[in-house]
Design a protein around this nucleic acid. Sequence first.
DNA 1: GTAAGCAGTTACCTTAACGTAAGCGGTATG
DNA 2: CATACCGCTTACGTTAAGGTAACTGCTTAC
Lengths: 118, 118
Amino acid sequence: MILTEGKTKHIECLEQMLPIRDALDVISGKWKMLILTSIMHGNRRFKEIETSIPKINPKVLSKELKDMEEHQLIKRIVHDEYPVLIEYIATDYSRTLKSVMMELHAWGVNHRKKILGQ
Amino acid sequence: MILTEGKTKHIECLEQMLPIRDALDVISGKWKMLILTSIMHGNRRFKEIETSIPKINPKVLSKELKDMEEHQLIKRIVHDEYPVLIEYIATDYSRTLKSVMMELHAWGVNHRKKILGQ
DNA sequence: GTAAGCAGTTACCTTAACGTAAGCGGTATG
DNA sequence: CATACCGCTTACGTTAAGGTAACTGCTTAC
């Protein structure tokens, strides 16, 4: 029955699309995955992160860090010392993104090769 | 030597980040991966693709299809028949994105579960 | 010959992302 | 006591992404 097939295909297709969009909502944008990469490489302080990412500015960094904290990808820790020290660390949950990031990285390397080869 | 370590870390970190950004430049945005999913599920005609993706509008679809053709993710084929028939198909190159899409999908499914469970 | 489908385009508008430059309250440094 | 570092924030743009509504030229269907 063609109608049923069509409907099934349509629903299947939607079921593929919606989670992909959910994921992209969290990771897309120019900075989030770069910030997460930086933090995962051991950068913890605001300035460290800022200087590790070319061309980012403090306003954008500040906003993205807040977003990422809301999404539970990072944790902001305030140490009550003198002077006050603030650290950003990656959460366990953010580590579930590692395979996504690895795939993105691998594809990006390949893509750059392709573009330069043209 | 701490200086060397720091420098190495810094460069290593950049080498992770740049390809990730290259990849995100191609796939990010609200629609591209949804369109590719739709086409990979067998939707070929403009209207088919349009109706398969909730809330997309023809202007956006048209623009994204052009972008994706430039990036060689899809091919636009014009059949010189009566009436003229136009098809969009996924390229071999777009299939290199499949593992990225699968990771995004898997993460998205998990993320939705997490959010609903809160 | 009117209506409807296809594959879009056009003009216009809103929203969100991103950027620049400067500054602020705190601490520490010469 | 001036200068500078830290972790930001504020005010003020600019750019790009995305949305709405209407319309076009072509074809076929009633």
